[in-house]
Design a protein around this nucleic acid. Structure first.
Lengths: 156, 156
DNA sequence: TATTGTTATACTCTATAACTATA
DNA sequence: TATAGTTATAGAGTATAACAATA
């Protein structure tokens, strides 16, 4: 499995435990810990599909918005168009995405999922839905989920 | 200001808005958005102090646990000891940290804050506390904060 | 043998500059 | 002049391997 990020710090207990009180009470820190924890599970599951988070987001977005330009998809996801090139090429080489030269604008490429890409995305989204269900269960059900989302919204 | 991470995606509205519904309802995604938002503010404030998140964590940890070995501090923070070397050297060159050869174990260095390091950390922690207050206010007060922390705990 | 600090190195992610072909 | 896609490149962050000194 590809380790792309350091697993949660897990305050270790060596000879004598270190004082970590100063950090554990802080919202930003706890938010980061929780986010990394959820993210790690996502990575573990999607590693089997050889799909990185950004690639998954791109597939979902193209699936919902077929025919859009690279720039449009990249911008929504906060990806620089320069970096988006390599990402899309990878998906194209795997036969998941097609870049169709736009006839309206000869500079642009219209992005589409291939038949294989659609099937693959369906599979990935099923996995994702399953992960989400597990997360909601971990939270304590739909009510807790709604509560969390409402709180998170205030931070944006 | 140093841009170390892409600012929040901010679903853009170009000619015709893209469908982003599939992502906006998902806990992992919303968690990441909120975390990045809080993190961005942290970066902006600590950029003035020329202090990166990892460096700040190291200073706090040394402050609370003076005399510990590099390996101990690094491990608690999930930093590889190989990468920790450069980080500590930087803090030492700035006169914030001292590496005292341990007499118990001639291989090890005991980490301490210098007087300047202590003063600097006090200042940084005051800034941090201020940031935390702002975050709590954004959340809607201490009760909302407690609620959020309880929910986040379930995800770890 | 194992551990501490260290160097060297590589890979991913993100960022900017500059080019080309179109608009 | 501005935009779409592209290439090249550079900086962080993070990962492993291997070494000398010491345990």
């Amino acid at each position: 499995m590809v380790q792309r990020r350091t697993p949660p710090p897990e305050p270790s207990e060596g000879d004598t435990a270190l004082q970590t009180d100063a950090t554990t009470s802080i919202v930003g820190y706890r938010l980061r810990r929780a986010q990394l924890s959820v993210f790690q599970k996502f990575l573990a599951v999607f590693d089997e599909l050889k799909l990185r988070p950004a690639e998954y987001s791109v597939l979902v977005l193209i699936g919902d918005n077929p025919g859009r330009k690279q720039t449009e998809i990249a911008e929504v996801l906060g990806i620089k168009r320069a970096n988006f090139v390599t990402l899309v090429h990878g998906l194209e080489e795997r036969g998941l995405v097609e870049r169709v030269p736009s006839m309206e604008d000869k500079r642009a490429n219209a992005l589409h999922l291939t038949a294989e890409g659609k099937a693959f995305l369906t599979q990935a989204q099923a996995r994702h839905a399953q992960l989400e269900d597990e997360t909601v269960a971990q939270l304590g059900g739909p009510a807790a989920r709604a509560q969390l989302l409402a709180l998170l919204d205030r931070l944006i």
